[in-house]
Computed example of a mutant assay.
Amino acid sequence: MKKISVHDAIGHVLCHDITQIIPGEIKDRAFKKGHVIKEEDVKVLLSLGKDNIYVWEKKEGYLHENEAAERLTKLAAGMGLEFSEVKEGKINFIAKYDGLLKINTDLLLKINLLDEIIIATRHNNYPVKKGDKLAATRVIPLIIDEKKIIEAEKIASGKTIVDVMPYKKVNVGIVTTGNEVYHGRIKDAFGPVIRKKVEKYGCNVIDQKIVYDDTEKICDSIKDLIDKGAQMIICTGGMSVDPDDLTPSAIKKTGANIISYGAPVLPGAMFLLAYNDDIPILGLPGCVMYAKTTIFDLVLPRVLSQDTITIEDLAGYGHGGLCLECNECTYPQCSFGKGW
Rank of each mutant, 00 (worst) to 15 (best):
H7F: 15
D8W: 10
A9W: 04
I10H: 01
I10F: 04
G11H: 01
G11C: 01
H16E: 15
I21N: 12
G24Y: 06
G24H: 07
E25Q: 14
I26F: 09
K27H: 10
F31Y: 03
F31A: 06
K33H: 12
G34H: 10
G34Q: 10
H35A: 07
V36N: 07
I37E: 00
I37H: 03
E39N: 12
D41K: 06
D41T: 09
V42Q: 05
K50D: 01
K50H: 13
N52Q: 15
W56F: 15
E57M: 15
E57K: 14
E60P: 02
Y62I: 12
H64T: 14
N66R: 05
R71E: 12
L72F: 10
K74P: 00
M79L: 12
M79S: 13
G80S: 00
K87I: 14
N92S: 11
F93N: 05
A95E: 07
Y97W: 07
D98H: 03
G99F: 05
L101W: 04
I103W: 07
N104P: 05
D106G: 06
D106L: 13
D106P: 00
L107D: 02
L108V: 02
L108P: 01
L109Q: 13
L109C: 08
L109D: 13
N112A: 07
A120D: 06
Y126S: 10
K133A: 10
A135V: 02
A136V: 15
V139D: 03
I140N: 05
L142P: 08
D145R: 08
K147T: 08
I149W: 02
I149N: 01
I150W: 10
E151K: 11
E153F: 05
A156I: 11
A156Y: 06
S157N: 15
D163Q: 11
V164C: 05
K168T: 10
V170L: 14
V170R: 04
V172M: 07
I174H: 00
N179K: 06
E180N: 11
H183R: 14
G184S: 08
K187Q: 14
A189H: 08
G191R: 14
G191I: 15
V198K: 02
C203E: 10
Q208L: 09
Q208P: 00
Y212A: 11
D214S: 13
D214L: 13
E216R: 11
K217F: 00
I218K: 00
D220G: 02
D220E: 14
K228F: 03
A230I: 07
M232L: 07
T236K: 06
M239S: 06
S240V: 08
D242L: 10
P243D: 12
P243S: 15
L246Q: 01
K253I: 10
T254W: 10
I259F: 01
S260E: 00
P264K: 07
P267D: 03
A269V: 11
L272A: 02
A274E: 06
I279P: 02
P285L: 08
V288T: 08
T294L: 04
F296I: 04
D297G: 06
D297I: 09
L304Q: 05
S305N: 09
D307R: 11
E312N: 11
Y317M: 11
G320Q: 03
C326D: 13
C329D: 03
Q333Y: 15
C334Q: 00
G337M: 01
W340C: 10
W340V: 12
W340G: 03
